[in-house]
Design a protein around this nucleic acid. Structure first.
Lengths: 202, 202
DNA sequence: CAATTTATTTACCATATGGTACAATAATAA
DNA sequence: TTATTATTGTACCATATGGTAAATAAATTG
């Protein structure tokens, strides 16, 4: 089954599972943000010593990037999934509703890591801050492209400004992330989405 | 005119203007958040040495609280002002439109300090984090109360859930704060508000 | 077996953090 | 003038930060 142990590499074997460790790092960064997560908290959470972390993942920045990649392909993968819905309207519904599930999942930190990982920070973290902005823009771009596709399918009117609509949806998503971190309940988040959907311009 | 110098206090006079210093501290905290603003950056920005800051304002937490108070009664006072508009609809319009002006003002940091001052942080800042949540809830409560008043004036239907509506408006506001910090232009923010207003349930 | 390779542990590094002791300074009060 | 009071500047403190050197341990190769 596990092909990884069929042919062991040369030296002393690694004593921890990289994916498991990355998952734990993700939880810490997700909960406290890039700056708010200290290396000592991370070492404690991962259960391995610092030199092992640095050997396996590079440095704090790299560890964050790898945790972030895991985040987007794991818990936050629903964003890409939502784009596959058959109509623009359903895409928005799915995106926002799944975001509510996501934000109110009590087994994970509240809020979106891409929104809150480094919104404000010291100068030393500006690289990460900028990368998260790029990720946020990426979500907007996904929405825009999906709306453009809907236009070609006569699912949306040709005069509709897809970029603006995407930005509006992203704004609600980001606002809900803040709400979730502020303690908003699942029911409250659903109410927000219902208001938003009931009054959607599409 | 200046009554403060008519009767000087006993010892060596203070060498800096407290309000000016607080204003500079506000700018730093606003731009970098509570944790992201270091005492050394603050001392440099205020142009006074650390012992003077501590003598005048207590400690970093107290300095932040005083800067935050200045924020709410100064640049962010428009929130309370907006509540005075004659109808619920106009309250929301004014609140969101003035927020756009506020967020896109190039002479101040982008985004809202109450939203971004300590969204995520290390454990040592959880007190400030909690206080900012309380401030955010306060804005929602202002909106709720204003909508309740509108009900008594037959300005809003009696069956309308004012808390939910307030939370929805607050969500858009918070989302726009994230957008502003991510580089959204004034025009883009206006477009967001226009979509939101065009589809308002009131 | 020894040699080699890699990972772990321990202990440490330079720097930055929030915060302060203490002496010097500048004002007022007597 | 002298005493008193309060603020300033310098120099410092304990601790935490991200990060690493060096020795040790555990595996494979020959």
């Amino acid at each position: 089954m596990n092909t990884a142990i069929l042919k062991r590499p040369r030296g002393r074997p690694t004593n921890f599972d990289h994916e498991e460790a990355l998952e734990k790092a993700l939880q810490v960064f997700w909960a406290h943000g890039y700056e708010g997560a200290s290396m000592s908290e991370l070492t404690e959470a991962l259960g391995i010593n610092k030199p092992s972390i640095y050997a396996a993942f590079g440095n704090k920045e790299e560890l964050f990037r790898k945790a972030l990649a895991r985040y987007t392909t794991g818990p936050a993968a629903f964003v890409g999934e939502a784009m596959k819905e058959p109509s623009a309207r359903l895409v928005v519904e799915k995106f926002l509703m799944r975001a509510v599930d996501f934000f109110s999942d009590k087994s994970t930190p509240s809020g979106c890591m891409i929104v809150q990982g480094a919104l404000t920070c010291g100068q030393s973290s500006s690289a990460i801050q900028q990368e998260l902005i790029t990720y946020r823009n990426g979500i907007e771009t996904m929405l825009t492209k999906r709306f453009e596709l809907a236009k070609t399918q006569s699912d949306l009117p040709p005069n509709l400004n897809t970029k603006q609509l995407a930005k509006y949806i992203a704004t609600i998503h980001q606002g809900m992330s803040v709400q979730a971190t502020s303690g908003a309940t699942r029911e409250e988040l659903i109410a927000i989405v219902e208001i938003a959907l009931k009054n959607l311009p599409i």
